[in-house]
């Protein structure tokens, strides 16, 4: 009888003890203006007559850091996440820290130079994911492909592969988002804003590091909020 009581007491203490805090989750939400974005859906830009049907959009988020009043409170180890809009599992991930207090998230869109020159890596960085150039070395930071009525390509297709790890065509971009501590932080990625600056009529394809790739990468960094 006594033993049972002691066990009950232990059980009670266990239940009442403060639990390990909730894991910190990040979720990327692709949007088109005010709507939830869907691949393969035909969209129109309101300002122009261009139509966009995006079949593929993949990119790297890396070097995730959390800040409180400008001070670093958390830095993810081995921080490389391949986001694929066609794979909803890739859109959310957990950070290893618990009960983190922060007011700002900083991260890279793309892969930094030193990782780029360190050879071939595994996991999300494995070249089997099609995010590594083969004709010359380097990661593709961001890839978007689809169709547009304004593309001058015969099939009406467009594809933009943005990358470049060395100056003057360094494409990786750091973004900083103000947020509040919450177990789940949503990051919106506005594709309508991104495609609005694509040179779809004049240059429906970019497949190598260039000035235009740098310009589009800078613009891409403004499409996360």
């Amino acid at each position: 009888m006594k033993i049972k009581f002691i066990l009950f007491l232990f059980g009670l203490i266990y239940i009442l003890l403060p639990k390990k805090g909730a894991a910190q989750n990040l979720r990327l939400k692709p949007i088109w203006g005010n709507d939830v974005f869907q691949t393969e859906k035909k969209y129109f830009l309101s300002t122009k007559n261009d139509s966009f049907q995006i079949s593929l959009c993949k990119f790297y988020l890396s070097e995730i850091e959390l800040y409180k009043k400008g001070n670093l409170v958390y830095k993810e180890d081995n921080s490389f996440h391949l986001i694929n809009l066609n794979d909803c599992l890739s859109l959310s991930f957990s950070l290893k820290g618990n009960d983190l207090q922060f007011d700002e998230i900083r991260m890279n869109i793309g892969i930094d130079s030193s990782t780029n020159v360190s050879g071939i890596m595994g996991g999300d960085l494995d070249p089997i994911h099609g995010m590594y150039w083969t004709w010359q070395s380097g990661y593709i930071n961001f890839k978007i492909e689809g169709k547009s009525n304004s593309s001058k390509n015969k099939t009406g297709s467009f594809s933009y592969h943005l990358g470049g790890y060395a100056e003057p065509f360094l494409c990786v971009q750091q973004i900083s988002l103000k947020t509040s501590s919450s177990p789940l932080v949503n990051i919106n990625f506005d594709l309508a804003k991104f495609v609005s600056l694509l040179p779809i009529q004049t240059k429906p394809e970019i497949m190598s590091p260039s000035e235009m790739a740098v310009m589009l990468s800078k613009h891409l960094a403004t499409c996360f909020k």
């Binding site: 360190s118 050879g119 071939i120 070249p127 590594y132 083969t134 004709w135 010359q136 070395s137």
Partner: peptide, 15 residues
């Protein structure tokens, strides 16, 4: 074009 030996084989495999 290739800056690291580990990335070299990707080029002929893909070309």
């Amino acid at each position: 074009a290739i800056h690291h030996l580990d990335a070299q084989a990707l080029a002929p495999i893909s070309h």
